[in-house]
Design a binder for these strands. Sequence first.
RNA 1: GGGCGCGUAGCUCAGCGGAAGAGCACCUCCUUGACAUGGAGGGGGUCACAGGUUCGAUCCCUGUCGCGCCCACCA
Length: 922
Amino acid sequence: MSGVWFGRTSKIAMPIDKTYQPSEVEGRISRTWEQADAFRAGRPERAGAKPYSIVIPPPNVTGSLHMGHALNNTLQDILCRFERMRGRDVLWQPGTDHAGIATQMVVERQLMERQQPGRREMGREAFLKRVWEWKAESGGTIVNQLKRLGASCDWSRERFTMDEGLSRAVLKVFVELYRAGLIYKDKRLVNWDPKLLTAISDLEVVQVETRGHLWHLRYPIEGKIFDPNDPSTFIVVATTRPETMLGDTAVAVHPDDERYEKLVGKHVTLPLVGRKIPIIADEYSDPEKGSGAVKITPAHDFNDFEVGKRHKLPQINIFSVEAKLQLKDNAEFLDGVAKSPDLDATLAMHGSDRFAARKAILARLEDKGLIEKIEPQSHVVPHGDRSNVVIEPYLTDQWYVNAKELAKPAIAAVRQGKTRFIPKNWETTYFNWMENIQPWCISRQLWWGHQIPAWYGPDGKEFVAISEAEAQSDADKHYGKKTALKRDEDVLDTWFSSALWPFSTLGWPDKTRELDRYYPTATLVTGFDIIFFWVARMMMMGLHFEKDVPFHDVYIHRLVRDASGAKMSKSKGNVVDPLGVIDEFGADALRFTLARNVAPGHDIRLGPQDVENNRNFATKLWNAARFVEFNGAARVEGFDPKTAKETLNRWIAHETAKAAAEITRSIETYDFGGAAGAAYRFVWNVYCDWYVELSKPLLTGPDGAAKDETRAMAAWALDEILKLLHPFMPFITEELWAVTAEQGPQRPQLLALSGWSRLDGLADDKAEAEIGWVIELITAIRSIRAEMSITAAIPLVLAGASAETSARATRWAEFIKRLARVSEISSAAAAPQGSVQLVVRGEVAALPLKGVIDLAVERARLAKEMQRADADIARVDAKLGNANFVARAPEEVVEEEKEKRGEALGRKTKIAEALERLKGAV
RNA sequence: GGGCGCGUAGCUCAGCGGAAGAGCACCUCCUUGACAUGGAGGGGGUCACAGGUUCGAUCCCUGUCGCGCCCACCA
């Protein structure tokens, strides 16, 4: 058996402190876990166990723990600890992501702040060295924070997307996909970030609703003399981006648009440039939009690019990489344009930023009467998710993955149920995206990342290989002589390596034992926001390279918001730091709050009030354990709850089994909120509120078999509670497990235990009926006491009670007296005059309060109850009187209604008698 | 424009075909030997609206209104 053995050697001081102090306990418990090495996958004692694996969504090395991480990892930890306790061989694979753009930005910012030479000044090699240094210093932060949360990852297997093994996987995947024709280089428009100076993928572009304008421009028709007052001398095009007009190479109208029929085939003279560009007919042009004629700028617009290809239009790039006008020495721009004063003025704008250029161009067009009108218009403008600048469609050479091809098996796998999403409706989202997937641009003009394994010969021919030596040898063969090669400078999209995570972390491309044992993984737990970025791509890569899905279940959770439902953001200043919450309330309270608040279809709100409440829950549990300890309720080796004789003990065993079943079922179905809620109710409302209270007379009473049994049962049920709660609240449960271990046989750590509660054969309806009656009776009496403000002890008379009830009353007399503050219990044929009469499970309990109670108030109370009984009877009668109901409803339902009728009638009779007797009292 | 989700107690949410639930908040009372980070009791809801299906609808279907998210779209 693994793990540290607790027992008399434990250093924990007894007795247990009055309140639970997470800050004192958590660090110590963490260390014992580490010593026990029980998070390690593949421990010898679990060699024969079924594996269960989860790969962590690798946080950015730049990151520090935020609430999203806290939620995500709490849920994974619940699953891992649960499965570990069920005896599975659990691998929770941890690691971090190199986060290309984010990390490069962080280090560049640091250089700037320290006024050190920038990236380009220091050069690639020195800069990368610097990033690695930064990683060595700061990269461990998030891992340590995850440990504070209690994440039971196999830390011995921690990986980094740029470590040696994973880099090897990346190389191999790239080369193999290249050779299979699934990775290729292409010159087309990409989303270009003019601030970060790199291409980004479609997914890294966020569309921002912006209030802008629609400018209607007049393009003079060739061969006519432009006259602002004569529409036949020009054609109007509408645009939101007038500055791109310098790169226009056509004007398109719809083929069926009669307004422009005669103009098709003619040319216009592009203002400010003087270029003659054709008026073409293309269905892309929408007669409903704008003027119905649209300017075509193939080098700066995705749609225009396609139109340009169809019509073999030239592509004129007018921007530099920084999105400044690049006109001088721009052969494409100058090609076929005659010198003119207008052109000179345009060339003078060379180097101006795109937004400045827009203003300047509009001013010049205005001067010339070339603006027909300006309409306000709101539209969406693409922004870079990292840089937050406007993204420019830009014509460059980039590497692409043929995602359409790779998506096919990934779609099929979900259709066939090999991978299922929880909640299921995310499958629709997945299909929608996968079925319309576009080529994935994977090259980035960055330095930090996996450099693309492509080398170029002097003629630009590419050689893709796993190593430079191999590429060189291919090149030498190709050229027939030793030829100097130049390596592609770009690196891969960070998500490229993340896509391999489920198998690269297990040692792929080597055929490792881990790969064999833990792939496919069981479950992926992640946020909906990275379904496309990550989940879909892991599906594609996993299926392609391992011929199997990377995970069977994908559990998708939503966002953590603040108490008022607002998204947490630095700018709003409403970010709740999980570490701060842990410091204040403990990791268990935070975890339990997150788990309890998870609700499918809803974001998770997290307020301090919730965490505090769950901290209180931890305290409650703590004190229950303290109570058990005070009363010498030590665990008894081999105690079998089935052998319990005391009804109370049989009842708590029954309730424990019920709770265990509910919690188990809920975790199995990923209903974390349900599981945590069931645990909460069982611990607080069943064990603490009733079992502990009802057990007091037994525990403080004289020694005897009943006392011994109750001690054993109290300890047993507490143990079960600790187990059931451990996945949610690992620290406090482990601590209490250790503390209670001091009073009884030695045992391994909770975490290492293979002993999840499977409590069969403990159901006991008889015990439930008896204790249920006791509880309801006590509750009813308390209610009357509170309502009537009675503080003194009062007698209880059971009126016309059955033999069974009388017997119960005798057995529970002491408990009822104590908990309901009853002075004595007697039986009578009928309730004494002037008493309050309570109907509890069909029996009348009378409180003789003549002189104490206000008879009018009591009459009103009974009348109200009578009304309720009448209403119940009427409702049931209406149903049973309905021939259709009796004929069509299922037999059980009809039977149930009849029983309800009987119950209600019985109740009514008792209440009527009570009222009658009350009259007599007056 | 396409898709998804949500409107249930003051707030956050369960329930999803057979008599409206929890936690918090609120009100009243209580320092009794586990716990005031506590205990006892209580008030509070035409389950968004309108139709339909059904013996029966908070629950299923259709529509309307409101809220949120995702994808696509710089004429």
